[in-house]
Design a protein around this nucleic acid. Structure first.
Lengths: 126, 126
DNA sequence: TCTATATTTGCAACTTAGTTGCATTAACTA
DNA sequence: TAGTTAATGCAACTAAGTTGCAAATATAGA
């Protein structure tokens, strides 16, 4: 699993993520790169980058998939249990470096927890 | 907004939710009631029931919409900030009556927080 | 550097969840 | 019970994401 070859599409996608830690939706990426690459390719590269621990994904408000850079993830373990914040005004999504401690739930084994917070971001709040 | 008339479809949908507090996906409801009612109607009634504070909705793992009964919600205020739990084995989804305290996030106004926990439920855990 | 091979890509067609417009039907009100 | 207005069914549509397959391309080895 994961990235094996460094192709043009891989390079182009990585470039989109390199300058900020903001999350980008798959739809947005297709809008940006869809002229140069087929959407199928974009979806497949995103999947490979996620398998490789380079990106992580999560769902935004309308069930749209978002991607963001990973911090210290590998192809064997994803440790992005941080919450994601989506601004209801400008639509921007980013990762919050905040710990949310999950309460112990009796008789259940928690494996993944996705937390999506909606509200006004730093820019729209002021 | 909200329910005005007590129609057959409203009654049928409420009946699906009356006996358990389990969440049911829109897709599942269409499977169950799609013979008697058009899927458009089902989606529309679900929206109205949500507007009225009878049901609340959230997104499951694949971006599919789930619905569950509300507890103490009204047409003016939805207060279902509880987490939802989806079993990775059997697929069952239910509401957890557990408090998750959101940490204060500087310069942001939090409005909604969706928490989706995945893991093994009580039945599949044992 | 060239070649063989396996990965990656583009294309087109498909799937699935959910939405829209409009004419018809069925609740509720007086 | 009649009139009105909300609710419904239908068909067609949208939008995100997937699949199969043939063609292109990156990489390892000679």
């Amino acid at each position: 699993m994961g990235i094996i070859r460094k192709t043009q599409s891989v390079a182009a996608l990585l470039k989109e993520f390199e300058n900020s830690s903001e999350a980008i939706s798959a739809v947005e990426l297709i809008q940006r790169l869809g002229v140069r690459f087929n959407k199928t390719t974009i979806y497949r590269v995103l999947t490979r980058l996620e398998d490789d621990g380079v990106l992580h994904s999560f769902l935004g408000v309308n069930g749209v998939k978002w991607y963001a850079k990973c911090n210290g993830c590998s192809s064997t373990e994803h440790k992005d249990l941080h919450p994601h914040f989506q601004c209801t005004d400008c639509g921007k999504v980013d990762c919050l470096s905040v710990d949310v401690l999950m309460p112990k739930i009796p008789n259940r084994e928690v494996m993944i927890s996705q937390i999506l917070i909606q509200g006004k971001c730093e820019t729209c709040f002021a």
